[in-house]
Design a protein around this nucleic acid. Structure first.
Lengths: 173, 173, 173, 173
DNA sequence: TATGAATGAGTATTCATTCAT
DNA sequence: GATGAATGAATACTCATTCAT
């Protein structure tokens, strides 16, 4: 990716995440990126094309974060790593995840199957640990983590460290 | 509220909830409501004014749903009613809640204090029931319910009844 | 048709005819018509929609010009009226016809069946008058008249009166 | 002319002829020619420069086609060769002529004197053959041939062979 | 000669909003 | 209260043209 193309993506990511896709004019992206407006369309064809380029990278990052869990064999470690996941997200990546959560509300970008591998992995883990309703347990844990992620991203969760320890304790980890 | 004013609100609610506020042109609202575009501005001054009118009603509805919990005295019942809350939302109201959840992502409409009364009530309840970390317990339950609400509204939660019973069991209810 | 809508059509006709459809920006049409640019799209949806509206009117005018010939019963009069047709076009209508001839070069707007009724009528007329190759005669006459029309519209035909008489003489009229 | 320069001219000719000069973006020409967009401007300075280069070649070709008539001494042969001219155009040259006819509608490229030598030659021929109105006869024949050319180029003339023979018969050739 | 990234002015189109009726 | 024509600023997108390599 050329220098300017990268600049466009960065600017767009920040603006889409914070002001919203529809509320962000392409001229604002161009100005923030320090490039001409036309260049956006030369590189991405569409405003939507730009969004999709960002989104494609997001899929990759999601996989990077989740795959260490999927390769874990110890059931306790599966749960531990899953709980720790949202707390480990670097601040520099918040815009990225903010955009992801926003886009979930657009039919077009919402893919309910995305979490399935993780749910499956958690279900197996809970099963091995002798939990009664392993599927519901994993759905519940996933729910907690989704909500936590949202709070963290929006800087709306106090005492993260203590809360994380509380959760780990709950699962006897 | 006159007949036509009501029609505008209904149309706007559905469109804002499903297509997004910025992505919905006023002419589309007018067409769907079967009124002239000008009438929207006679009744609401602004497009934003229309959104705020809808939003104000949402606050009222939120209070309607939560207040029965706040007036509950039995701690077990507090938790039971809280868990049951998202499962009892009528389908006819989904657009309403969908819009609320979407708007949470706009700084302007996000009010982190909104859930405070419920969190407090839950904390007290968990305290009375002898839970070790009542605050974190209530935050956790709230997280679960937020995530459930999102799934239900988006028609993304299977076996709701069984899941609800599972949760109640978890809290020994 | 409202006053302003009519103004738009007039301005567009003149510009499309003289500068070409693609070479005419909508802002120029708006300025010439003395209206806001947006109004063009409110009335015609598209720039192309505007062209098509003009074109539809052109079809009507063509029919108005040709139908008196089609209802003629005397074969000599059929030929006479046909020959006179291009010479009788009023100068105020030149832009209209200019645009028609230009558009014939766009696949999309070229309809080879348009002249068929006239060709048929002429063929019958030549047949009745005992011409040897009535179909070719009518094609030939039509060719002459098309070329004359083009010359007249572009103000490129000197001594129109004498030329017309020459042609009539050729057909012994 | 280098290989690539030639490719550009070919691509531009086809596109200008069929889609129109204004409707053809330079990037489309470049893609069709298999060269970079910049190269067009290195070779032709302008988009207009490219058009003019094509046009200059057209003038040459026109002269090639007409000069054999101008050097003809037998009046009958002058008329015969003139009539046969449009029927002899090779299909591979249609785009060339199509563009010429289209450009006639742009003031800038319309040169009414272009046909003058041919008209003069025809007039003299008709004079020698004892026709009454030699000038009008030659204008008329020219009109017929212009219209025929247009029809042939647009593949809109059936039974060309028979029609040509019909015309020759008309002039007792 | 040839490329392709980059530009900036332009162009069709949208849209919230106003206003006379 | 209600309409619908009209506006003008904004917006996504195009395109001829330049320039460093």
């Amino acid at each position: 990716m050329t220098d300017k193309k990268e600049k466009i993506v960065e600017a767009a990511l920040e603006l889409f995440a914070n002001e919203g896709y529809n509320a962000t004019p392409t001229c604002k992206i161009a100005k923030k990126a320090g490039v001409s407006e036309g260049l956006i369309f030369r590189h991405f064809k569409n405003k939507k094309g730009l969004l999709e380029a960002i989104n494609a990278e997001a899929e990759a990052r999601y996989r990077d974060v989740v795959s260490p869990i999927l390769f874990e064999t110890d059931p306790k470690m599966v749960i531990k790593k899953t709980i720790e996941m949202p707390f480990n997200v670097d601040k520099s990546q918040f815009d990225f995840w903010k955009l992801q959560f926003k886009l979930k509300w657009e039919e077009e970008y919402f893919n309910p199957n995305k979490v399935k591998p993780l749910i499956d992995k958690l279900t197996t883990a809970f099963e091995r640990l002798g939990y009664k309703d392993p599927l519901f347990e994993s759905i519940k844990l996933n729910h907690i983590l989704e909500a936590i992620s949202i709070d963290i991203i929006r800087d709306n969760l106090a005492e993260q460290q203590l809360y994380k320890e509380f959760l780990l304790r709950k699962y006897s980890i």
